[in-house]
Computed example of a mutant assay.
Amino acid sequence: MNMLPWWFWVLLWIVLILGMLLFLVLAGIRLFRGFMKLMDEVSEAGDRIGTAMETPAGPIDYGVLPDRGPSGVAALFQDPEDARASLEAGKARRVEVRRARRVERKALRGQAQRVADLDLF
């Protein structure tokens, strides 16, 4: 049986250990770079959230507030047809106020408008 010399085994183990160390160093560098890239993204996202959460300097305009109808006991004695008409009118006003706010908000952001919101038809 032909045995390899002892120096061959020493050389083989040195090469294997150096290869393993090189692999670990390169993997560590790649992992560190990925972690730093992740931290940059987290910092940028935090900055964007921070600027979005800032309170505006001036007063906030909430648009036209809908009129409130009678509620409570006084509404109990109202004619049912009048109450139903008042309810439907209130719903229509609230829908129109939401539509107007949506159109204004999308116009400020430069977004495309919904055709239904534009009251073209």
Rank of each mutant, 00 (worst) to 15 (best):
L118I: 12
A74Y: 00
G19H: 02
A74V: 14
D119C: 06
D117L: 09
V115E: 14
A107F: 06
A112G: 07
A89W: 02
L31D: 03
R68W: 02
W13R: 15
L65P: 00
L118G: 10
L76V: 04
K37S: 12
R114L: 04
Q111P: 00
A92C: 13
E104Y: 12
E81P: 00
R114F: 07
I17F: 06
S86Y: 05
L38K: 15
V42H: 11
G110L: 02
E81I: 04
R99H: 08
R94P: 00
D117Q: 12
S43H: 13
N2H: 06
L118H: 12
P66H: 06
V25G: 03
L11Y: 05
E44W: 03
V115L: 13
W6C: 03
P66E: 03
G110S: 03
E41Q: 10
L16I: 13
A45D: 10
E104C: 02
Q113V: 06
L26Q: 08
L26S: 10
W6P: 00
L4F: 13
L118V: 11
R114P: 01
D61E: 15
M39Q: 12
A112K: 11
V73A: 02
E54Q: 15
L120I: 11
W7M: 01
V42L: 10
D61C: 12
K37M: 08
A45H: 10
R105C: 03
A107M: 11
A57E: 14
A45C: 05
L38P: 01
F32Y: 10
P5W: 11
P80Y: 09
Q78H: 02
M39H: 04
I49Y: 06
D61V: 13
R105M: 13
L108F: 10
L31Q: 08
A107N: 07
G34H: 12
A57M: 05
G72D: 01
A107P: 00
Q78E: 10
V97G: 00
M39Y: 01
R93P: 00
L12R: 11
M1H: 05
R94E: 09
A83S: 07
L22V: 09
L21C: 15
P80L: 10
K91Y: 09
V97W: 01
G63F: 15
E44H: 06
L108I: 11
L16C: 06
V115C: 01
R84A: 15
L21K: 13
W6E: 07
G46H: 08
L108V: 12
L38F: 14
Q113H: 14
D117P: 07
A83F: 07
W7S: 05
G72F: 00
D47A: 11
K106P: 00
A75I: 13
F32A: 13
